[in-house]
Write a protein that binds this DNA or RNA. Sequence first.
DNA 1: TTAATATGCAACTTTATGGTTGCTAAATTA
DNA 2: TAATTTAGCAACCATAAAGTTGCATATTAA
Lengths: 108, 108
Amino acid sequence: MQDNITKLFKAIADPTRRDIFHALVIATSALSITQISNQFEMSRQGVTKHIKILNDTGLVQMEEQGRNRFCFADPKPLKEVNKWMQFYAQFWDDSLGNLESYLDEKKV
Amino acid sequence: MQDNITKLFKAIADPTRRDIFHALVIATSALSITQISNQFEMSRQGVTKHIKILNDTGLVQMEEQGRNRFCFADPKPLKEVNKWMQFYAQFWDDSLGNLESYLDEKKV
DNA sequence: TTAATATGCAACTTTATGGTTGCTAAATTA
DNA sequence: TAATTTAGCAACCATAAAGTTGCATATTAA
């Protein structure tokens, strides 16, 4: 369907998913679906859908235990996002001036 | 409507927009809408829409010159995305083990 | 002035996305 | 065993997103 980095960006583009991910990152233990959805306004099924999307990117992993599915965060996939970003980081500071002066300099 | 960071993530979540942004970053001069859209399969209007979205985040800036609108990239807004990422970077390496061992350690 | 070029705007279509409700099934507790 | 809890699945709905075409308009070139 779509490449990995696109899936990652789309996953974290949703505010609710960023919240879920964050909650799991700072949690002191793995949380069940119900425990997670209690922290949000939306229905359990809504949260489940978000978790599935996060799980598809690897940002959330799960472990079944009886009728529970405990979820925990794995920030590692964000490394790829970071790698994407680092390419552009070189233009953040001094290069901005250059970019802005393209028109003046080169008179396209 | 939606907060800045969400707009940023959504903007770069689209592969075509990442391509447009990248093309502008590595371009040696500012490019007109037509010049940009010639590099893509899709219609000029399709590209225009993407550029508008990028422009709304500040990732692309424009300068009108007669009938042309020259576009250039400004990677600065990505700083905010980077800031978001850096919080999770602390969990990338050694902490993954901890995350994965939540269940074992705490026996939730 | 006529023709060509660069662009914006609006309407429309298709598909994705975010969310809901209802039902079923498995695991746990009383 | 009966009741409760946890969760998945499927259907459905509303809105957003990605892309298209057609037309109008301003600028530039012949």
